[in-house]
C-alpha cells in the first residue's frame, strides 16, 4: 500500500517519510524521535508536532504498545458474527462497545445467499469458557435486536505481518 492520501490532512513528503520510518515503531530511548529527526534533518519538536496533527485528524489512533495475545494468556480469540436488522445496527454496535470487552466491532455487508451476518465483534479470552460467558452477556445485551449469531474461532495464524505502507 503506497501513494495513499489521508482524509482531512495534506501529507507532504516529510510526513510520509515519518510514517514509513515509524512503521516498525519508535525506539525505546529517552528521546525516541531524536534519531528520526537527525535522519530527516528536522527538529524533534517538528516530528512531534506533525505526529500530533496526524492524530488530530484520526490518521493515528494512539501511540502505545501492541502486545502478543498468546503471551498474555489470551489463547481463545473468536470472531462473533450477528444478523441484526439494519435499523437496529447502530444501537447494537454501541451496546457492544459499552460492554468494554469487545475489541473490534464493525458493520460489514451481507453476502447473499451464503453469508447472512452484518455485525462483527472480536472477543478475546484466556479460555473458551471465558469467551462463551462473554458471548452469553452479549446475547443478553442485544436481546431482541438480532436474529441469529455464530462464533468463529481462529485455529491457526497463517500470516501476521500487519499493513505495509512500503513496497
Amino acid at each position: 500500500m503506497k501513494d495513499f492520501e489521508v482524509t482531512g490532512l495534506k501529507l507532504d513528503e516529510m510526513d510520509k517519510k515519518i510514517v514509513l520510518l515509524l512503521q516498525e515503531g519508535i525506539s525505546v530511548t529517552e528521546r525516541p524521535y531524536l534519531e528520526l529527526a537527525n535522519q530527516l534533518g528536522v527538529a524533534e519538536d517538528e516530528i512531534v508536532e506533525r505526529l500530533k496533527a496526524m492524530k488530530s485528524v484520526g490518521f493515528i489512533r494512539k501511540n502505545a504498545v501492541a502486545t502478543n495475545h498468546y503471551k498474555l494468556g489470551y489463547t481463545a480469540n473468536a470472531m462473533s458474527v450477528w444478523d441484526v436488522d439494519p435499523e437496529k445496527l447502530e444501537q447494537a454496535g454501541l451496546l457492544f462497545k459499552e460492554l468494554g470487552f469487545v475489541s473490534h466491532c464493525y458493520e460489514r455487508p451481507k453476502f447473499a445467499p451464503e453469508w447472512d451476518y452484518n455485525l462483527f465483534a472480536m472477543v478475546h479470552g484466556k479460555s473458551k469458557e471465558e469467551v462463551n460467558e462473554k458471548i452469553e452477556t452479549m446475547k443478553k445485551t442485544i436481546q431482541g435486536l438480532f436474529r441469529k449469531t455464530d462464533l468463529i474461532y481462529s485455529t491457526k495464524i497463517l500470516k501476521k505481518t500487519g499493513i505495509r505502507l512500503k513496497e
Binding site: 500500500m1 495513499f4 492520501e5 489521508v6 482524509t7 482531512g8 510514517v19 515509524l22 516498525e24 515503531g25 519508535i26 525505546v28 505526529l51 496526524m54 492524530k55 485528524v57 484520526g58 490518521f59 493515528i60 489512533r61 494512539k62 501511540n63 502505545a64 504498545v65 501492541a66 502486545t67 502478543n68 503471551k71 498474555l72 460489514r108 462483527f120 499493513i163 505502507l165
Partner: peptide, 22 residues
C-alpha cells in the same frame, strides 16, 4: 521476551484513500 510486539503510533487506514477489507 515477546510480550510487546511493537511500540509506536497505530495508523488508521480507514482515514486514507486506501482500502482495507476482510
Amino acid at each position: 521476551r515477546g510480550y510487546i510486539t511493537r511500540i509506536g503510533p497505530f495508523f488508521n487506514m480507514d482515514k486514507t484513500s486506501g482500502q482495507v477489507t476482510l
